[in-house]
Simulated scan of single mutants.
Amino acid sequence: MRQIFLDTETTGLDPNQGHRVIEIAAIEFNNRQATSNRFHFYVNPQREIDAAAQEVHGITLDFLNDKPLFVDIAADFIAFINGSELVIHNAPFDVGFLNMELGKIGMEKLESYCDGIMDSLKFAKEIRPGQRNSLDALCRAFDVDNSTRSLHGALLDAQLLGEVYIQMTRGQEAFTINFEEDSSKAALQSVDHGDLIVTQPALDEVEAHNSYLRSINRTDGW
C-alpha cells in the first residue's frame, strides 16, 4: 500500500483571505516502510507573509522571491501523489490551501488525484481522547525524536508524521499473501520441518480472514 505523508507551510491561516502555500513536502511510504522518494518545494506566494505565520515557520519573503510559483510545480506534485492515500495532520487545513492553489490554475481538487485522505489528527483524537494530539505531543507519546524541530517545516513535519503514524497504528498491519503463483498451488499444504509442521491456509480462508480485518478497520474509524 502506497501512502504519502504530506505537510504544507503557508502565509497565513485562511486561503479565503488570499493566503497562499509557501512550502510543500510529501514523503512516500510503501507497505508501512519509508522509501527514498520525496517531493519538496518552496513556493513563491507573490504576497506578504503574516508576521504570526512567519514566527511559526521562519520562512521569509526574501527567501521565497526566487522560488517557483505553484503553477510551475503543480504537475510534478500531482504526479507524485497520484493514486496514493494521503496522510495529513489536521487535513482540512492543508487540503483547503492545496485545493485553493489547484483551483487558481484550473485543476481539479486534491481528492480527484489521490486514493483517499486520512486526517491523522482526527485519528489521534479517537485513540487518545482528552489528550493533546499536536505533532509534538504525539512525538513525545510515541517516543519519536523531534529534538531538531525548533520551527515548523513541511519536510521535517512530514517525516515526523510518518514515524508517528506508524507507531500509532502498530498492530493494525494487514496480513498479506503472494497470489502470483498458480492458484492451484495454494491448496492446503503441510510442510514437515522436523518436529515443526507449517500449514499454509487455503485461498478462501485467507480471503475470509482479510474480510474480517477490513470489517474491524471500518468499525475502528479507518
Rank of each mutant, 00 (worst) to 15 (best):
D62P: 02
S147G: 02
D62V: 03
Q46G: 05
A141F: 02
L196Y: 13
E205K: 12
I127F: 05
G171R: 08
C139R: 02
D195Y: 08
G162Y: 05
E23S: 13
E48Q: 09
N31Y: 07
K122N: 04
A52P: 09
A51P: 07
A124R: 03
H152E: 12
F70A: 10
N90Q: 05
I117A: 11
V87C: 13
N133T: 11
T8Y: 05
H57Q: 08
S36F: 09
F123T: 08
R128K: 15
Y42P: 02
S84H: 10
H152L: 12
L6S: 09
L98P: 01
G162T: 06
F5D: 04
G83S: 10
N37T: 05
L155D: 09
R47C: 09
S183I: 13
D115W: 02
I105V: 05
S120D: 08
I177F: 13
D204N: 15
N65D: 15
I24A: 02
L138V: 07
K109G: 14
Q200I: 04
I166Q: 13
L98Q: 03
K104C: 06
F41K: 15
Q189T: 03
T148G: 02
A52G: 14
I88S: 03
F80L: 10
R2G: 14
E55Y: 03
D145L: 14
N146A: 09
L161M: 05
T35M: 04
A187V: 15
D204H: 12
R2N: 15
R47T: 10
V95G: 01
F97P: 03
R214E: 08
Q54K: 12
R20L: 07
R20S: 12
I105E: 02
N178F: 03
L61E: 05
D157S: 01
D115R: 02
V206P: 02
H40F: 10
L102E: 07
E180A: 11
Q159F: 01
L121W: 07
L188G: 12
D143G: 10
D7R: 01
D115C: 04
R149F: 09
I216V: 15
N31L: 12
A34H: 08
P68I: 03
R38C: 08
T176S: 14
F142K: 04
S36M: 10
F5I: 09
L155T: 11
C139T: 00
S184R: 14
E126G: 14
R132G: 04
P92D: 13
L156R: 00
N82H: 08
D220I: 07
L135N: 02
T35N: 06
D7F: 00
V144S: 00
Q3K: 13
G130Y: 06
R149H: 08
F123I: 07
N16M: 12
S190L: 14
A25P: 07
F80G: 10
V191S: 14
Y42G: 11
F29T: 11
L160W: 02
R47I: 04
E207C: 06
S190E: 15
E126R: 14
M118P: 00
N178D: 09
L213T: 11
A53L: 04
S211Y: 01
S147K: 00
T148C: 01
L196W: 10
L6G: 06
L155Q: 05
I88D: 06
A25S: 12
D66L: 06
S184L: 11
Q189V: 05
A75E: 11
I177N: 10
L203I: 15
